[in-house]
Amino acid sequence: MTIREARPADVPVILQLIHDLALYEREPDAVKNTVESLEDALFGDRPTIFAHVAETGGRVQGFALWFLNYSTWEGVNGIYLEDLYVRPEARGAGHGKALLGHLARIAAERGYARVEWSVLDWNEPSIRFYEQLGARPQSGWSTFRLTGSALAEAAAL
């Protein structure tokens, strides 16, 4: 298994894995992303996201897509893991653990304060996996989101 930075040629497979993740998360029609949009976000003039892939035998088995966040209290960046996904047939072989370990090394090497992410409450297999790695849920916090008409209304304030 190899963990490496994503390349432009990986974009179509990463997008397919994003679709697979949406299906797993019970939102099969929610993905609006395109190859062009994802490629621009990863490799355009002003990249806003980063991705690493887990590869075995030349086949991408999973990916981690992330971006930088910032802790005003710590005064340093952190990594926000937007998506971590491993193909069902490749699960249990260490791909997810290797991807998270790689992100943790990036954070440690760069002096970042943390690696954090969200997980759906019902996703017990992932929750157990994360807890086995030493990750802990953040109690006392709720995720809020502005989207659709609420976003448009807030933008008009």
Rank of each mutant, 00 (worst) to 15 (best):
residue 133 L to S: 08
residue 155 A to H: 05
residue 69 N to K: 06
residue 115 V to Q: 02
residue 119 V to W: 06
residue 133 L to Y: 08
residue 31 V to D: 06
residue 66 W to F: 06
residue 49 I to K: 10
residue 125 P to S: 12
residue 139 S to R: 15
residue 129 F to M: 04
residue 147 T to C: 11
residue 142 S to W: 14
residue 41 A to G: 04
residue 14 I to G: 09
residue 87 R to G: 02
residue 6 A to Q: 04
residue 59 R to I: 10
residue 61 Q to K: 09
residue 88 P to I: 02
residue 39 E to M: 06
residue 109 E to W: 04
residue 24 Y to S: 01
residue 22 A to Y: 02
residue 111 G to H: 05
residue 29 D to A: 15
residue 153 E to A: 11
residue 132 Q to G: 09
residue 132 Q to M: 00
residue 32 K to E: 11
residue 36 E to Q: 14
residue 100 L to D: 05
residue 119 V to K: 06
residue 99 L to H: 03
residue 149 S to H: 09
residue 146 L to Y: 11
residue 142 S to D: 14
residue 31 V to C: 05
residue 38 L to R: 00
residue 68 L to A: 14
residue 48 T to D: 05
residue 12 P to E: 00
residue 61 Q to D: 15
residue 34 T to C: 07
residue 139 S to P: 08
residue 134 G to F: 06
residue 83 D to H: 05
residue 62 G to D: 07
residue 134 G to V: 00
residue 154 A to C: 05
residue 125 P to A: 13
residue 72 T to F: 06
residue 144 F to L: 15
residue 131 E to W: 04
residue 48 T to A: 14
residue 11 V to T: 12
residue 54 A to K: 02
residue 85 Y to R: 11
residue 81 L to P: 08
residue 17 L to T: 00
residue 98 A to V: 07
residue 68 L to Y: 15
residue 90 A to S: 15
residue 79 I to Q: 11
residue 150 A to C: 09
residue 113 A to L: 00
residue 2 T to C: 09
residue 62 G to M: 08
residue 142 S to N: 14
residue 135 A to W: 03
residue 119 V to G: 08
residue 40 D to Y: 04
residue 99 L to S: 04
residue 63 F to P: 10
residue 96 G to K: 07
residue 115 V to N: 03
residue 16 Q to G: 03
residue 122 W to T: 11
residue 15 L to T: 08
residue 122 W to V: 13
residue 52 H to A: 12
residue 113 A to K: 03
residue 78 G to N: 09
residue 120 L to S: 01
residue 149 S to G: 06
residue 49 I to Q: 09
residue 77 N to H: 15
residue 146 L to K: 00
residue 93 A to E: 15
residue 13 V to L: 07
residue 123 N to K: 10
residue 154 A to I: 05
residue 21 L to T: 07
residue 84 L to T: 04
residue 40 D to G: 04
residue 89 E to R: 00
residue 56 T to V: 14
residue 17 L to K: 01
residue 9 A to H: 07
residue 148 G to R: 02
residue 48 T to H: 06
residue 30 A to Q: 12
